[in-house]
Design a protein around this nucleic acid. Structure first.
Lengths: 110, 110
DNA sequence: TTTTATAATCGCAATATTACGATAATAAAA
DNA sequence: TTTTATTATCGTAATATTGCGATTATAAAA
């Protein structure tokens, strides 16, 4: 136990959940917002801005990168992280699809 | 350590992240979809459908309830869970707002 | 009242996540 | 080459999550 039983869910459910999961931490939300607003895309700036240790920021960036949401390119001594617009739009679509499912109204909980 | 440092983030970032977090598990996605499609809103039906133990389903339902996404009303021996449409639409709006932030294009990662 | 059906809660074990210091890796600058 | 700046990775401690059996609570049915 203590292990998510992914095998009993659909591929789609697992994928959607893991996307939501990546966004389920305030540091990663903050990082994304910071990058989106182009206040910076350099790891070190995020460290100064957020007030978490460099190792911690690096770990969160790795998770965001693994999800495909951001990509990083080496720029001299530092690494520039940016939103992957294609992936961003794709995810946007999937979330919209999830949320625009029509909720059937019943008298069940009225 | 091992504890999310919520105090260094904005209220908004924490709230958004915790909403995403609730949706970050395939069982909770499956439960929501099942309720949305009105295949059932009874805990026991979910147990049969999903193949997780009753205690586990009950725990997931509790988390969904705590987030406000669903509400439950007692119906005789069982409890009927339904989407809270108001909350659903509110969350939909917040997510849309997050995802419609315009990603500023730079030549940083091109 | 006793039984039955349903759901919530408790307690626990296994695993995952979060955070950080220390260290390694990499590349520019001196 | 040596130093400096930046980021990744390793190892570890603290905490959280997931899942389930056992038990409790609740209400309908017998």
């Amino acid at each position: 136990m203590g292990l998510t039983r992914s095998e009993i869910f659909t591929e789609e459910q697992n994928k959607l959940a893991s996307l939501f999961k990546v966004l389920g931490h305030p540091a990663r939300i903050a990082i994304l917002q910071f990058i989106i607003n182009q206040k910076a895309c350099i790891c070190n700036d995020l460290v100064e801005e957020l007030g978490l240790a460099q190792a911690t920021i690096s770990q969160h960036l790795k998770e965001l990168k693994n999800s495909g949401l951001i990509q990083g390119t080496v720029e001299g001594k530092s690494v520039c992280y940016c939103i992957d617009e294609g992936v961003w739009e794709q995810i946007q679509k999937e979330f919209m699809a999830f949320f625009s499912q029509e909720v059937k109204v019943t008298n069940c909980c009225s």
